[in-house]
Design a protein around this nucleic acid. Sequence first.
DNA 1: GCCCAGGAGAAGG
DNA 2: CCTTCTCATGGG
Length: 300
Amino acid sequence: MSNYIVKGVSAREFNLDHIFDCGQCFRFAREEDGSYRGIAMGKAVTFSYCADREELTIENCCEEEFNGIWKRYLDLDRDYSSIKMWLSARDKTIGKAMEYGYGIRILNQNLWEIIVSFIISANNNIPRIKGCIENLAREFGEPLERKSRDELNGFVGVEAFEGGNSEENQRGGAGFNLPSPEKLASLTIEDLAPIKLGYRAKYLIETAKLVVANGLPENDEDLKKLVGVGPKVASCIKLFGMGDMASFPIDVWVKRVMNHLYGIDEKDMKAMAVFAREHFGEYGGIAQQYLFYFMRTGAL
DNA sequence: GCCCAGGAGAAGG
DNA sequence: CCTTCTCATGGG
C-alpha cells in the first residue's frame, strides 16, 4: 500500500511537534526525521509534514482510510485560521501564545481511550502517564489488526514498547489497543498491580463497569457519575473525546498561566472558568491548548 | 531525600 | 457550600 498525501495544508495551521506535544495525546513518539509514529483509532500510523510543500503524508494509507478516519482525527475540516483571528481580536494575550505554538489542532480521539487516558492523568506527570498507558495496552489490550508485510513497512512500535514484548517487536507487529470497557471491567486491582497505576487502578475498573452497564457518557451528567472523573478530567474528555471545543480544562499549568497572563488568583478556578467562557467563548479548548503549550514548554 | 505531577474522593467544617 | 487530607508512584 502506498502513502496518502494531503496537499494544501497550511504550515501556520498544522505543526506536528505542537499537535503531539501539547498534552492531548499520549501514544505518539517523534522520529528522528520529525515524523510522528503512534497508535490511534485502532491503527498504527505515521504522520509526516513538509512545510515548504504544505504536504501532509500518512504512511501506508489509502484514500478510504484517510476519509474514514484521519481526516476527522486531525480535524482537517475545521478552519483554524479564522478561529485564531477571532480569538486574537477578542483577546490580545492569547495572540502571543498562538504565535508561539502555531499549528496546534484539537484531535478527535476515541472517547473510551480518552476516558482511560485522562483518569490515569490525574495528579501524574506526562512521561509516566505515557508509560502507564503503553503498559496497560501491552498487558491487557487487543493486538492491532495485522496488516500485510508491505503495509507494516518495518513498524516496530513506539518507543515505550521497547523492552516490552520484544518478540512482537521483532516480528514487526507490535502495537496494542487499550483494553475495552468489558476487558477492564473483568480485571481486579491485583491484575492491574504490575501497571503501577497507584490509586487510579480502582477508578479505571469502576468506571469500566459503569460504561459496560450504562454505555459511554454523552453529557455532563453522565460524566459526573464516572469514578475518577472530576471537573478537570471531565473537561478533557469533552474537549478531546466529545468534540466540545468550548471545554476549558483547568490544570496546574493553566492555573499558573492564567495567573501570570491575566492576573487571576491561582486558586480561584471559578473565576478562571468564567473568564474563559467570556473571553474565549465556543473556542475555549483551542485557547486552552495554546496556553498549556505556552506555559509548559517554558515560553513564560 | 525532596517536591511535584494535565486531581479526585472523602471527611470535616 | 467550602476547605483540607489522603491517596500511589516515579520523574526531575
